[in-house]
Nucleic acid binder design. Structure first.
Lengths: 235, 235
DNA sequence: CCGTAAATGTCGTCG
DNA sequence: CGACGACGTTTACGG
């Protein structure tokens, strides 16, 4: 291995450093941060975040786990973070104004509600929102290019493929279009109609969808959740 | 304004708190974090990050700027972060094990190299990589649904639309397909061929592209940069 | 491990 | 401010 330095192994703690530093990343792209004061967080898994005082939750520069941090006994102090893919993050530390370490333990994790999978579960129970008399063939109906959110059968026996989004944009229409093209090749299913269902449908997505004969349905999450049995069971 | 509490205005500093806390977010979705020790970062712009000791750079929970932090003098200590859109992040702090504040100043910002715009600039100078004798009509050729990366003319006078990606996936093929459909409606341009150029092209994207008569070209960034005049000028 | 799709995506740019 | 595409997207899920 080139160079010396101390390799920091697994510590069950975060290290928080505030320091004047320059940072260089070479990997999927090349990125350079000029000398300035920043917050550096080293997590237990070796991952490193370099934050400025502003911007959103995204660090200016970072290294994702799994990776290895090596602290060089050079002047200026240099930290080198590397991973298997050959990406390198090098932090030159010119002056440290804060350095502390904290033991946090394993986090119990985040509980979410209101994401697409919930919409799907609720809709599968209330297909009338999509069309009177619809019956469910399958959730996550598998195709060669991925699963269709809902496959239904209308009163007239025709099949209906439903793509569900929280926010309906062009990508979602394209996705449904690919599914429909494939499903319509299956003589046992064809003809298959398309329904694009979302809490919010962008005008351009609606235009594209309707231009392709895909019906758009705007969903009311609160109403779906209020009416449903699962609504209370799930959360 | 409901409730009391001290509203923390603009401070030109980050505050770093390590504390046992529970966190609730209500906004675009609902998310709950059970009681545990975490790192809480409050940036100068009022934005808040709640990090665990692990995972990647994404916080467990957060609020993006612009937003307002109100510290309630309750027991347990409660921080309420809100924004214009009505999103709320509420942090109950049960025990503080670290609390410090640091002045960082404005960050000079990140310098990047190696992204799509550079690929586009390099390719525009070396069109032979795409096809012998190609000439450039325009970079960012405008259409009603967005700009085509490169519009070229081949030796035989036919037009060629080029979509450039760092990583070529299905989305990029769809995008180019939409452009081609539009461009081919223009009698002054039609017929327009498609070329999908990327540093890496996923098999499924290649299959879809070739199925649609779109030619795929794999780019070598280092070679493009080495050969080019701009290569040295740009960086 | 690959491939696909979701995301509180975020971030920049352009109209 | 909205629309749109890029992103070191990251992250989760399924084969």
């Amino acid at each position: 291995m080139p160079g010396g330095g101390r390799v920091t192994g697994y510590r069950a703690s975060v290290r928080i450093v505030v320091a004047r530093c320059t940072v260089n990343y070479v990997g999927r792209l090349t990125a350079h941060l000029p000398e300035a004061d920043r917050v550096i967080i080293v997590k237990a898994d070796g991952s490193v975040l370099v934050h400025a005082d502003g911007g959103s939750y995204k660090p200016l520069n970072w290294m994702s786990p799994p990776c290895t941090l090596r602290e060089m006994e050079s002047d200026p102090l240099t930290w080198e973070v590397t991973n298997k893919a050959g990406e390198r993050l090098v932090i030159c530390i010119h002056a440290i104004s804060h350095d502390s370490e904290h033991t946090l333990g394993i986090d119990p994790g985040l509980v979410k509600d209101g994401v697409e999978s919930h919409l799907q579960a609720l809709l599968a129970e209330q297909l009338d929102v999509l069309g009177i008399g619809y019956s469910l063939v399958r959730r996550e109906y598998p195709t060669a290019i991925g699963p269709v959110d809902l496959l239904c059968r209308a009163l007239d026996g025709l099949h209906v493929a439903v793509e569900i989004k929280r926010r309906g944009e062009i990508d979602g229409v394209e996705q449904l279009t690919r599914y429909l093209e494939l499903l319509n090749r299956d003589p046992l299913l064809a003809p298959v109609e398309g329904v694009f269902a979302a809490q919010e449908i962008k005008p351009q997505a609606r235009t594209l969808a309707e231009d392709r004969g895909i019906r758009c349905v705007v969903l009311d999450y609160e109403e779906l959740r209020g009416t449903s049995d699962v609504g209370s069971r799930l959360f």
